[in-house]
Amino acid sequence: MTDSEIIKLVLRGEKEKFRMLVEQNQQMVFRTCMGFLHNKDDADDLTQDIFIQAYQSLSRFKGEAAFSTWLYRIAVNASLNKVRKSSKNLILQRIDAFFGTGKSGEAPFLPSDAEDPENILIRQEHVEWVRRALDSLPDNQRTAIVLSKYDDLSQKEIAEIMKTSQGAVEALLQRAKKNLREKLSAHGKNK
């Protein structure tokens, strides 16, 4: 049964059929949320909200794009909204770090030459500064890099989700990678 056939049945009142759409796309939505939120519980909660939101808006799905593309758009918008809402908490965390009570003030890590690049152990501080570097990207660059790195989507698919051209996506990805590299190397220099 195709996605559009399932959607027709759901709209006719067979809402239990929506379960099939959830099962097919849950991991994909969850991965996107993880790319923005970096927290499993938050990503799970947001995934739930996104599917309920998608169910409520199902009559507005015109079928011009694939259902997954439409769902990706909802997921990206919901994730960005969630990130913006939690920015207040981030400010509080930074104040906390400034006064030396938070964990985010830890010294950044630069791997030594002695370490084998392929076998570098990931420590908590690595995770923290990679997340911070990703979160500091502008929204459109961040969206492009999340869809590329977390969801392994092609530039064509990303362009469709972001309603832009492939060339624009390529430029966005290049700028995002450059920005990430600069932010990561700045961490290295600070050490």
Partner: peptide, 25 residues
């Protein structure tokens, strides 16, 4: 050093990607 940092970033992303959504959701 920058190359190693990029490898670490990729590993962090891969680790987040490997997480599975809650099946009871």
């Amino acid at each position: 050093g920058i190359y190693r940092l990029q490898l670490i970033a990729d590993k962090v992303i891969d680790r987040e990607k490997e997480l599975q959504a809650d099946p009871f959701r």
